[in-house]
Computed example of a mutant assay.
Amino acid sequence: MKQAKWLVASLLILGVLSYLWGRAPSKLSIDSPTQGALTEVELPADCEVKGEGCLVSIDELGEFRITMPETVIPLERFAFEVKPQDEAARSVGEVRVDFEMVDMDMGVNAYRLERLADDTFRQDIILPVCTTSRTDWIANLTIRSTEGGFLVRLPFHVDRSRP
């Protein structure tokens, strides 16, 4: 009887550990939503985040260049970068991005961007494939700073065929 209890307990622990291991430990800490109110930032009319990127101005903080590669393919890793311009980096504490497709459940695609030595915030991203062949995404960028929280919604399209 004692052995059966140990076997059941061991299997239960292995099951929990397997689940956590499969969830990608680096992502476990960033699925939690950010706290506090966010001020939505209006995008410039000519904002195209892919390629050279888009320069977004936040009155209280300054300007930020937001970039991703010209070609973004589902299930392939790509870099998402936010580069504060001039003195804007001083007051920025945290930068996160959450990818969504309007009226479509694509699961949790949330990432915390890492601050690099040059004050660029960067993270490698992998987006899922939409089974209905949609390619329209929105990158919801959250910037937390000493001046408050700001939300930038960046629409873009993924590339379904290889270049």
Rank of each mutant, 00 (worst) to 15 (best):
P44D: 04
V16M: 13
G15M: 10
M68S: 11
A24C: 11
P84T: 03
I73T: 08
F64A: 11
V92T: 14
E48K: 14
D31C: 12
I30H: 11
G107W: 09
E70D: 05
L14H: 09
I58M: 08
L12A: 15
L43Q: 02
V49A: 14
A9T: 15
R23C: 04
K27N: 11
S18A: 11
K27D: 13
E94T: 11
A37Q: 12
P84L: 03
E87Q: 09
A45F: 06
P33H: 06
L75P: 00
M106E: 01
P84W: 04
L38I: 05
I30P: 01
P33A: 08
M106G: 01
K5H: 05
G107D: 03
P69Q: 04
R65I: 09
L14D: 03
G107F: 14
L20C: 08
K83I: 11
E60T: 00
T67I: 10
D31I: 08
T34R: 08
P44G: 05
D31S: 09
L7V: 14
M106C: 02
M101D: 05
E63G: 04
P44N: 02
L61Y: 00
P25L: 14
C47V: 10
L55E: 08
G36I: 05
A89F: 07
E60G: 00
P84S: 04
E63V: 00
P69H: 02
M68W: 06
V97P: 01
F80A: 09
L61P: 00
F64I: 05
E48V: 15
V56D: 06
E52A: 15
E42M: 05
A79M: 10
P25Q: 13
A79T: 15
D105S: 07
T34N: 08
P25M: 09
V49K: 11
A79F: 07
L55M: 06
E40L: 03
E100G: 15
R90W: 01
V49G: 06
M68K: 12
V102M: 05
K50V: 00
S91V: 03
D31L: 07
L14N: 13
L38A: 12
E100K: 15
Q35F: 07
T34H: 15
T39G: 04
P25Y: 12
G22F: 02
V108Q: 03
V82R: 13
E87S: 14
A9I: 13
T39K: 08
A88K: 00
P74L: 02
D86P: 00
S29C: 07
E42Y: 05
